[in-house]
Amino acid sequence: MKTIQILFVIICTHSFPQFCFSQSEAALIKGVKNKLDKVNNYQADGVMTIDVSFIKVPPSAVKVYYKKPDKFNVKKDGGISILPKGSASVNLNSIISGENYTIVPAGNTVLENSTVRIIKLLPNDENSDVVVTSLYIDEKKLLIRKSVITTKESGTYEIEMAYGKYSEWGLPDKVIFIFNTKDYKLPKGVTFEYESGEKKPKTANSENKKGKVEIAYSSYIINKGVPDSYFK
């Protein structure tokens, strides 16, 4: 009897590997989703640091707003906030909020000394801008440590997250958002700029086409309501 059971497991895993694994991967995604679902909305305070070769901006205090299912905004009180295009649509809650994707397991890896499972989400909708999303999930804590999102229009986004006191809600203490940047150049006539005759040294990252935005959160106000006007 025991031999038959073992044979059944072997035949099953070799003949229908997707079926056998997708159950557990789907359960993991569901677990993460259930955790994130506890958050209907939040308002968070944080400090945003932008590292883009052609933008010089000091770190600034920002307020981050989220509302289910996919409303997300970053505002600087009384100032100007600048965010990579599309970053609002690639926040984690909106990525796994629906179920219109195929789950593909992609093994395990180690991130910052802890083993994480890699799960790829392939959208079923052919018109979706997202081509594939790779999630690096801490199975024990049901937390997404990192995600890599490849889109048709804007290239690849990479989001890295560090968790602390809000991990029970699935909300990170720090998010690092890495994205592709395009060239920026304006005619000197438009900017009223004049040549000084001195050669400007090329900075180390002037050829770097990757940009980085980091938000370090200091506090969250969770499920206390966020007006729709905050997302305009």
């Binding site: 052609f54 010089k56 100032g79 100007i80 304006l186």
Partner: peptide, 20 residues
């Protein structure tokens, strides 16, 4: 009114905090 100052240069963009 006041807000942050965004300066468009030919190859860079500088954003300065309104208190600065």
């Amino acid at each position: 009114g006041t807000s942050d100052l965004i300066i468009l240069k030919s190859e860079t963009i500088v954003i300065l905090d309104r208190h600065d």
